[in-house]
Design a protein around this nucleic acid. Structure first.
Lengths: 329, 329
DNA sequence: TTGAAAGCGCTACCAT
DNA sequence: ATGGTAGCGCTTTCAA
């Protein structure tokens, strides 16, 4: 079907091996004029190397698998965008795999990606039941990096200091005179959310502030579901495990005629792009997607290109983005 | 490295060919007991077929390329989600390619995906300068489907009736007594946006309504950029080329103290999930992502599995979703 | 019903 | 400096 090395070699009047050398920049062994002839032939025939054949002999595929809970979650969409872009620049193409927090599906994708010979893996929100899969990857020497990691023992991850984040949120609210605060965490066993909770809770305890805790899904719907309870609890301020929850909370608060921030201060986590558009604009703890994707892709690419390269737990800074959804009490 | 057919055949005491037959369900030629032995061996060795080798001989890769302007645009994220899910169910994996409306990058991806032997292609927002690429795909017998299509002559596309959409928006506003309306379209040569404009404009002309037209990018920033001009135009209602523009418009209107919908009625297009969260909730023309992705993947899969299968221009219904951002005048 | 063997297009090694 | 060739793991005739 397509043009092959053989066609090119015939056209240029040289051997297949020579053409291969030229294509792979092993030009030390090739004279300029022959190189030129080959390049001309490649151009003329519009030759494109066959990835499958290359992959078969090299066990490299110039591709990486991106495992992600849900691409319609803006936080993950932004991660995916940066990852795909950086990877493409380095010549890797990205497989998109949505797991919907389904551990079984996640496992299936992991297996399939390995069978497809991906050169590396970026795993967002690995479910704890699949943690042992990482050991397999190590054994098989498949580079991987975990993001948004919910299992804090994982060594190859790009993380943020969630505990600090919780403290920052707490200090912000406590410093504004709130005496009864709430936290909305998640139903799953996510270490990162738990750390946010701990940091928050520790500060409140030290300041003798009452804390009401709610659990729900880390989605807009999750926020809607617990909103009434949060409002009824009498808390004057609430720290949401992520921004999406805050979105749902806003909606119900508005329906009930609760004024934000006058009657209820809300602080989120992530700083998704919508945070700036919400009304009032959401005060939140930002984790920089740009830094996360840059670190993740840089380290992954390094690992894919150099089997010796290794790294451990990069921890990225976070910071408070103060907007309009919190006020004095 | 991995377990190969050879290993399995040795373990089961049969030939490679037999194992291959069993794996590919050409079982008509194989006796039950030998089949069982082979399956046991596969299980025991945890054999996984090598995609590269398969792909090399079959020129099939069980993968499809998804070309998309920007995954952080919620409309495309929702399309990508449905597409990836449906494709995965049928055994295909999805390559994610963000083009950022960059025709050159789009072309590069298209070429690379073909080189990677994708079995099919779903192209969102093909730029007009790459339209001739489709002919190449036809010649090479690579199935493709175009979505959100900006070039209306394309035959293999899932579309909506944009002209109708424009009319619906216009009738909604005209029916509410508006005498001076605005339209925010885009700077690019997009047939679909132009059709929305035409439908809208035709109704206004028939009703002797004044129309002010603005051009910008189909993004939140685009909306922000023209917002002041729209407001200054004196129009009492505006139809935005997509919902994202409306988001930007909301923001500036709020800054300027313009009340929506009392002072300015706004109607969007797409019905992204955020439309329901905006304050006031956005009235908009919905195109069903579920239908689009279902049609797209169903036809694409059919084409990939049966070279004879063909189809032309599926046109999907749209409808007005009336919320809170438009009012009587 | 089963197996031997010829490639698919490419890389890498070994000759020349 | 260049070329011949042995595989990479699999599917697919064709023979047995």
């Amino acid at each position: 079907m397509g043009v092959t090395l053989k066609d090119v070699s015939k056209e240029a009047g040289v051997s297949i091996a020579t053409v291969s050398n030229i294509i792979n920049n092993k030009e030390k062994f090739v004279s300029p004029h022959i190189k030129e002839a080959v390049n001309k032939a490649i151009q003329k025939l519009n030759y494109k190397p066959n990835y499958a054949a290359r992959s078969l002999v090299s066990s490299k595929s110039q591709s990486v698998g991106l495992i992600i809970p849900d691409i319609t979650n803006p936080f993950f969409a932004e991660l995916a965008k940066g990852i795909e872009k950086n990877l493409a620049r380095a010549g890797y193409i990205t497989f998109l795999c949505n797991t919907y927090e389904n551990g079984q599906l996640e496992k299936k994708y992991l297996d399939e990606l390995v069978a497809r010979n991906v050169d590396g893996l970026i795993i967002c929100g690995l479910s704890s039941r699949n943690a042992e899969v990482l050991r397999n990857l190590e054994v098989q020497n498949i580079p991987y990096i975990v993001l948004d990691n919910r299992i804090k023992q994982i060594k190859k991850s790009i993380e943020i200091n969630d505990y600090d984040g919780g403290q920052i949120a707490a200090n912000h609210l406590v410093g504004r005179g709130h005496k009864h605060l709430a936290f909305i965490g998640c139903t799953g066993q996510f270490d990162n959310i738990k750390d946010r909770h701990r940091g928050y809770s520790d500060v409140l305890t030290n300041n003798d502030i009452k804390l009401s805790v709610f659990q729900t899904e880390l989605t807009t719907d999750g926020g809607r579901l617990v909103a009434a309870d949060v409002i009824d609890s009498g808390a004057t301020g609430v720290f949401c495990g992520n921004d999406l929850i805050a979105v749902g909370l806003y909606e119900i608060a508005r329906q009930k005629g609760i004024k934000i921030p006058e009657e209820l201060s809300i602080i989120g986590f992530d700083d998704i792009s919508f945070a700036e558009i919400m009304q009032p604009k959401l005060t939140t703890i930002r984790q920089s997607r740009r830094s996360i994707t840059l670190e993740a892709t840089t380290h992954l690419i390094a690992m894919m290109q150099d089997a010796q390269y290794t790294f451990e737990n990069v921890v990225l800074p976070i910071h408070l983005v103060e907007r309009e959804s919190t006020s004095w009490r």
